[in-house]
Write a protein that binds this DNA or RNA. Structure first.
Lengths: 211, 211, 211, 211
DNA sequence: TATGAATGAGCTTTCATTCAT
DNA sequence: TATGAATGAAAGCTCATTCAT
């Protein structure tokens, strides 16, 4: 998996790296609560600072602009996803591995519905540069599933063209996210386990159709 | 298809109904351009009026608040969808009909990508009341596909539980919309026709798995 | 009584004098209702026209500015007062005549509380020129009572200096108006008749103190 | 004298209580100048801030709405009145005490003509809630004189019914205020001392008439 | 005469950001 | 490092007035 090392730098006047990490996590947590409740634009930096537990002045010691907060939030989500999916054994190309990856991804989304919804609905408010970075991360996530699918494909379980690989990977990512941004419709009709089961089955049947 | 007759009223001080219709279409068109470009919050009412071709005062003759503009936009999209899908012959329950409905829906989205994207990213900015109305419209759209699927199901082509019917219908709606809100990823990998083909095939194989 | 003949002209594009009179009375009536309810500034010209029963365009055929409406209203009040107090017999200088004048004045106010309150609270919104005119009218009203008092004074019933005459006349005018602008306090403690009785008695005792 | 402890709270984002007091006094002073000159509605918040000596943003750190400014102004007037009249010795029921109270009240008004005029002409622009509070304060002021009169009455100097007590107290309050809102008429005919003398005399003769 | 759609100056209010302490 | 008072650009919305019909 290609590593995207050039994480955009959010500058700080504070030096203590650990403190920075700590404060930023406080900021992200506050932001999730507030952005979920009122959206990026309606939430004010004052509120974020207050919920985070410090003053507006302090907020701006760890962040240059309000947009930085959103960026930090999106970035942290991708890190979570990466960590979750990286904790796997090497991919050997079996369908069970694919199933497990899907399951982990869906479960992660279920445990972070708010954060995912925010990312989905608010990332457009990022600057062009930051948005570009975030979309790249998103593509990385797609690529991740694309790779797993490719492994399966190469081992003969599936036979998919490059285009089909991409569309299939996209398919997984989107359906997973839909559990977050369409919670209002889905959650009252099924549990996350039922959802995973249904999605996995139909998805696998779908891509195995040619055989 | 259940008719949602209680369209929320957006008040006006203008009396000429035709003029209202005309001006509001101008407003919607302007809004699509601007909301796409900068999002609901960054677009100003002044800009909307300017792009629409009249003064800020005139804008507010046809709309009470900025939110009304967004509501009008969402509402008009659903009307388009309804019109498009209502223009069909009676549903007889064949798979071809299902395919055709999916196709029409996807093509509609393709021809209104911007409007759909806006609706999906900005509808959260609606007031509770208006949001509720819009989500209901969305559920109606899902129900529409649910009905077609049910027809197929009853005629023996498919065998789906109620839950599966709902999830399958959702599936279609979401994948269709993803063509709009993930255009940045999808459009460079395939055409709308390829996308339709791929989605239709995998979807049908997916839901026919039990046989 | 000195006549103030130079009534400020409110121009019109309409020629028919009777129609003008009629429409303006409609305007004044509407204005009384609305200014009472929301004050001069919060009442809009649109509303005035609507309550008056015609369109905003028509309103502006009979009035140059919103301020004109207020001016018309104030002016009409003074005319009412004048008419009411002019309908008396010649003043002969008896205390009974004074009592009667006070009574008529107070009763008039009681029958036009809203209009008087508006005049008292909103006349400051008139242009300098119009305000000047209105205040002159007010002084005329004071002068009217001043004259009656002078008559009494000259006939030996009272002995008042010029200054006392002025202050006493003012006293009457103010107490009368207070029945309007302090209705919220007074009306629940006494009727207009009790109020007149009380005011007349204390006033007369007051100014007759020297004897 | 009944204490009205529930002073309506005007919220602030500033924490330093002393600073709040100081800035608000600046705001009130600026408001008196401007409301006097152009009235509540024609004076803009920007102007108020400018005259007060700070930016519009700062104004809104100490006040939630423009109406709050008016409320603050009214409230401060009542506090002045209360302080002035509370600094007296216990009321013993002599006429001299009554005279002194009247004198102090009139002198206070004379030293704050603008503020009183504003309060009387603009308080109608307050919200229902704030207006109610202000009118209560006004009634308290009336009650204050009512009490003094009652003392006199009980000690045998005066014999007044409850209704007469109320009307007499109102009388004083109104005449005092008239020195403010009719300055244009009164000030050129007499000094405040002459006015006090005249009012006191006629008032006392008036209410002592029955004996 | 009567109408009412169009106009735009101008108002109140918000809020991201700075900087002296 | 942390604080929070100060700032002012910018936004949404209103409404008196005009003018073509």
């Amino acid at each position: 998996m290609a590593k995207n090392k050039e994480r955009l730098q959010v500058e700080t006047s504070v030096k203590d790296a650990q403190l920075i990490e700590f404060r930023r996590q406080q900021i992200i947590n506050a932001a999730i609560v507030l952005f979920k409740e009122k959206g990026f634009h309606r939430a004010t930096t004052r509120e974020i600072a207050k919920v985070a537990g410090f003053s507006i002045g302090t907020l701006y010691e760890y962040v240059r602009t309000k947009e930085d907060v959103l960026y930090l939030l999106c970035d942290s989500i991708y890190n979570e996803v990466r960590q979750r999916l990286d904790s796997f054994p090497q991919y050997s190309g079996t369908v069970d591995e694919l199933k497990e990856a899907i399951k982990q991804y869906f479960l992660l989304i279920d445990s972070m519905t708010d954060a995912f919804t925010i990312m989905y609905q608010e990332s457009k408010s990022l600057s062009k540069e930051a948005l570009h970075y975030v979309l790249n991360k998103e593509l990385e996530m797609v690529a991740l599933f694309q790779n797993i699918l490719k492994n399966c494909s190469e081992l003969g379980v599936l036979k998919l063209s490059e285009q089909e690989l991409f569309l299939a990977a996209n398919h997984i990512v989107i359906q997973g996210q839909s559990w977050a941004f369409r919670r209002w419709a889905l959650h009252r009709h099924c549990t996350i386990d039922e959802f995973i089961e249904y999605q996995t089955n139909t998805f696998l049947c779908g891509i195995m159709r040619q055989e």
